[in-house]
């Protein structure tokens, strides 16, 4: 099958290079594309860009990064320096370390400097206030359902923000739950299969590494609802490193953190903040710039580090 070969070739080309990896999706077929380490040169003639930030962990101050606020500010400075101003930002969770008011406040203040509208889904660190997520919902849950899921449309692309960090079950991984899946089914019903879909959630919606809980137990039920669409891009955080795969017409991508790295799956006794040699921290933190070109359903993601 020609497409299959093309896909495999593309996967090879998706290997890291320099400071960023870029790939493009056209009609569900991933293709290699040029790399742009600076992440500033992918301005589409007809289309738009948005930006993904993740795992800012405002309040984290341990050995792996004594000042997560400072590196978040650096990430925001990178956003402000982009040649093409993103239409909006999505933050894929773990905005804060401990869901504290001052952490949310500082995160808001730092992000607001961009002047770019932002959408948020919570990470598990944003759910540990006494109200079990109320602090997050009060700030970022306007117009959302349940624990904070929502959808919106932008220039013909349908965006869906899912929450897979609420009501987690003993022994399990991330969890969407029946109520959210029912909402997703209704949300997608009636949309044409040619509508490009971008789904974002904190924990990966595919199993990256079960032993560390890096997956979502009931993700398959969500992916089944998305299968009929011609272009589905799934953006996640949580694991603080880039992992990507293409499966059928779905592209999966996880973003770097702006706070600290975590070990690659299975390379350490457990996940958790990884201390890197002095001077190397910023080379493992970063942001993701996403370009959608209208018409050919092409999506390009450029990951750039803070180094």
């Amino acid at each position: 099958m020609g497409h299959e070969i093309e896909r495999r070739e593309a996967l090879k080309c998706m290997a890291w290079a320099g400071t960023g990896a870029l790939y493009a999706l056209s009609g569900g077929i991933a293709r290699s594309a040029i790399l742009d380490g600076a992440g500033t040169g992918a301005a589409p003639a007809a289309g738009f860009t948005f930006l993904q930030l993740s795992d800012s962990h405002i309040g984290f101050d341990k050995a792996a990064n004594p000042d997560a606020r400072a590196t978040y500010r650096e990430a925001i400075a990178k956003v402000k320096a982009l040649a093409v101003k993103p239409d909006f930002i999505i933050h894929t969770g773990d905005i804060t370390q401990l869901s504290r008011d001052n952490e949310f406040d500082d995160a808001d203040q730092i992000l607001r400097e961009t002047g770019i509208p932002a959408f948020f889904v919570p990470g598990e660190h944003d759910m540990v206030d006494e109200g079990g997520g109320k602090a997050f919902l009060t700030r970022h849950g306007k117009g959302s359902k349940g624990a904070g899921w929502f959808s919106f449309d932008h220039q013909g692309v349908h965006f869906v923000g899912l929450v897979n960090v609420a009501d987690l079950k003993p022994g399990g991984m991330g969890n969407l739950g029946a109520a959210q899946l029912a909402w997703l089914k209704a949300d997608l019903a009636g949309r044409g299969a040619s509508t490009p879909i971008v789904v974002f959630a904190h924990i990966p919606l595919w199993t990256v590494y079960e032993q560390w809980g890096w997956g979502t137990g009931d993700a398959q039920a969500a992916l089944a609802l998305l299968k009929r669409f011609g272009s589905v891009t799934i953006l996640n955080g949580h694991i603080h490193q880039i992992v990507q795969k293409v499966e059928g017409r779905m592209t999966f991508h996880t973003a770097r953190s702006t706070a600290f790295p975590q070990p690659a799956p299975g390379t350490a006794p457990s996940p958790g903040p990884q201390v890197v040699p002095p001077g190397q921290l910023r080379s493992v933190l970063g942001i993701t710039d996403v370009t959608l070109r209208r018409g050919d359903q092409r999506i390009a993601l450029i990951d750039s580090t803070l180094a």
């Binding site: 987690l168 079950k169 003993p170 022994g171 399990g172 991984m173 809980g213």
Partner: peptide, 12 residues
Amino acid sequence: VAYFCSLHPMMT
């Protein structure tokens, strides 16, 4: 009594 970490439910 079984227990777990509600943030990292693999921990039991």
